[in-house]
Amino acid sequence: MIFRRSAGWAFPVVLLLAAVPRAGAEDPYLAARLAMVEEQIAGEGVVDSRVLTAMREVPRHRFVPAEYRHLAYIPRPLPIGEGQTISQPYIVGFMTEILRLRDTDRVLEVGTGSGYQAAIAAKIAAEVYSVEIFEVLADRSRRTLDELKFPNVVTKQGDGYYGWEEKAPFDAIIVTCAGGHVPPPLLRQLKPGGRMIMPVGGPFMTQNLVFLEKHADGSLSQKNVLPVAFVRLLGH
């Protein structure tokens, strides 16, 4: 009798103990990611619940090189190779929120990079088309997105300056690599009523984040929304 009672006690304990390492093994960074959303995203003023949910769900550390995984959830950009970086979490959240994505939207992303921004956008929008000029990054991001099962993200390697004409027009365009100007082909591929966000500027460290809206009549309005730090990519 006593033994049976003892055995009864043991089972939930063992299950619990077995469950804990398994949960840790599945997502050892869950706590860090939740803290990131709490402190760096919601805590810095991003309020769109869809963005917050997406950033809780998408494992940012999977998009970061192994040697920097321990830094994946700190408020800093991190190197991903080819002289490029994955943007700091707040910027990803901010840029996604300001685009006001809808679940029917077709989104163009210029500069796939790690694929993280595309993954966040894909959680909200219908389709994401992403272009990356560096083959190494294009291949790596494609693999990561496939492993994490993002079927609504379509990527290609190419010069994002020219957008993706075959898939145009787009409801939203997000440019993740800083450029010195707004590429005219991208403006042509933006739908009336569409939104575009892009970091622009000359200096290495400090850029303006420019938000553009294309009105129904085809005219554009623009405003600088936030100064950020982006690695400048000369190709865009």
Binding site: G180, H181, V182, L187, G235
Partner: peptide, 30 residues
């Protein structure tokens, strides 16, 4: 490089083409 499209400060009302470019660097900086 074909991927160079440098026109810092270009008006977004310009709806033409930017020709192929080379970039000049001084000590590795643009």
């Amino acid at each position: 490089a074909p991927g160079l499209h440098i026109a810092p400060g270009l008006s977004f009302r310009f709806d033409g083409e930017i020709p192929s470019q080379a970039a000049l660097f001084a000590d590795g900086e643009f």
